[in-house]
Design a protein around this nucleic acid. Structure first.
Lengths: 342, 342
DNA sequence: TATCACCGGGACGAAATGAGTCCCAATGTG
DNA sequence: CACATTGGGACTCATTTCGTCCCGGTGATA
């Protein structure tokens, strides 16, 4: 049954929404006994007119009856509600979580895809697809989009495709080299995205570890400063999130810093910054590009990460408090929800 | 699963329509390979604009991809189609018929594809695909597969593709020349199948009408006897079925025999044998190859035929009682079911 | 290499549908 | 009897859907 629901989610997502809505209406009427249209609308959080449409439909189906005193559920309706409950729970699960996380951190949107992207490549793809879809929906014309590296971001890039507004956009890496392998670093992702989206891009080629002297000379470079300007103009940033220690190891952060991070309880990493449990910044990777202040007044900050074990890290970044959209998967969302409620 | 569908039918009646529609679109694209929007719209019987909406949705879901040369299905789409097939069959009410026919004749499997393969080329293709799919599933390594001619079998050959076990198989015509035109005769089909499946083949070149003398000299021919050995080793036979009189005419059977067949009530033809209503053999075409006794202890006998008007013929062959698998279409199945229940 | 048919996508107006907002007669309740 | 609340009717406006073109590009073919 679960498979079938997944199929339907893919094939007729809007119909499932409508099903959920009608279920909610019926459910409310069941618990209310007899209730009026306006009262019910207020209680469900729908407008009167919309609810009316649903109610008329449900009446048509014989699931509820209407008289001058109000609406009440019929025997058929009660039976149906009983049968459909497990189904809707499944259906609700994720949207429920989405809403809880969204409201808890005041986000614009939360998207949770079913599955565990760490365990299943398909879910990882799905995560990428969801990320790409969110980008497509939120992007504006002539915008500069800053992106980070990582395998999840690579998948997002893979799943991106051309739309009218995307074509007029510029893709840039959010920050310079962070020690990732070539095909996962921000430069590559930005280039791939631009290619897939039909847009243009600027890359930021800076060495991984640079001293002050080198930094100063970099700032003199015309090409580099030009890219800086682009990055500063970004109104949208799309970034992955990772476990602090895992990222530190992968990026070959020096042992001293690693130890310090560990000591201070570093949990998460995002766009080159390390965060602790409460979302405080502990450390900044020594490279150039987007500054953390730039994140603050960004129009759209989209965080994308998933997989069992990522929940804590995502939560830490969310607590930093400057995300707008979160795209994650069921496994990570489960952890987040659990941590939130404990 | 069926209950769930019933619930959904009550709560969101359009869901099923919408699902069926999108399934149909995807299905058509699958069998067409690459196809344009307008062509597809005409073939499905939808308007261009509506189809476009569906296609854009399906693209959004990653189930098909679009480029300048047309639309094609993605791996995800192919997978989804496979998963959803039983469900859609349920919607069409075909699983029910499948089971009724299967149990009535003690078959291993019955597959019914939606539509009328006589009226719609698409359904004919679909019939071929279903036939090929059954073959793929039932074939064993290093097996010899005997096939017959006919337009349906040609379509099966077209839709066949290589699998590991298929590659080790031999394809042979079940019987020698039966008077079919070149591209529909068993030899051609066997060769095509072998090519598509990546397997090998042996052909049986014998003249259509031969006398005893010629027959004896044939049996002396080393090449011919070698092919005979192959045919006798076949454990799987895949054959079409036809209306007796139609086949007799197409194969230019002499008027005397034709009259005799008509007199005795010949209804069906399969692998060169003519059957009456009750499945009794009336006549055997004068050629060489698989004998009817060989059919009896065959591992897998797969009969494939469809189209309005074929129901009676198929039923006659089924009554002969040595089929294992039947692949047909909705139109023929409807006739079979109706005849069975009357 | 030139041609041509068919491809996807953009555009636009007509039509339909959805949704917000009132109002009103009826009904139940005190 | 008065009052609150009910469902249903009506109207307008916004949005979406749909039919129907056209266009530039592309792949096959001659």
């Amino acid at each position: 049954m679960r498979d079938m629901l997944d199929i339907q989610k893919l094939l007729v997502p809007d119909l499932l929404d409508s099903m959920k809505k009608r279920y909610t209406v019926l459910q409310h009427i069941l618990v209310s006994g007899v209730v009026g249209r306006r009262t019910l609308a207020a209680s469900i959080g729908s407008t009167e007119r919309v609810l009316r449409g649903e109610v008329e439909f449900l009446k048509e189906q014989g699931l509820l009856q209407i008289d001058a005193s109000g609406m009440r559920i019929t025997e058929d309706g009660r039976l149906l509600l009983e049968q459909i409950e497990p189904l809707v729970k499944d259906l609700f699960g994720l949207t429920d979580w989405e809403e809880r996380i969204r409201s808890r951190f005041g986000l614009k949107q939360v998207v949770i895809v079913p599955g565990d992207s760490e365990a299943s490549p398909h879910t990882k793809k799905e995560l990428g697809r969801a990320g790409a879809s969110v980008m497509r929906k939120l992007v504006k014309e002539e915008e500069v989009i800053a992106v980070t590296g990582g395998s999840t971001m690579a998948e997002v890039a893979n799943q991106l495709n051309a739309t009218a507004s995307m074509k007029s956009c510029w893709f840039v890496p959010a920050r310079g080299g962070l020690g990732e392998s070539v095909d996962l670093q921000a430069n590559t992702i930005a280039a791939t995205m631009a290619k897939k989206a039909g847009g243009r891009y600027r890359l930021l080629h800076v060495p991984d570890h640079l001293n002050d002297e080198a930094y100063q000379s970099l700032l003199q470079d015309d090409h580099i400063t030009e890219v800086f300007h682009f990055i500063r103009k970004a109104r949208m940033v799309v970034h992955g999130m990772g476990d602090a220690m895992v990222m530190a190891r992968r990026r070959k952060v020096d042992p001293e810093t690693t130890a310090s991070l560990q000591r201070e309880g570093a949990l998460a990493e995002a766009f080159g910054y390390y965060f602790d449990r409460s979302g405080r910044i502990l450390h900044k990777m020594p490279t150039v590009g987007l500054r953390i202040e730039d994140i603050h007044d960004m129009d759209t900050v989209i965080g994308i990460a998933g997989g069992r074990g990522k929940g804590e890290a995502i939560l830490a970044v969310l607590r930093y408090g400057h995300e707008d959209v979160l795209v994650t998967d069921e496994a990570a969302a489960a952890e987040i929800v659990q941590l939130l409620s404990s």
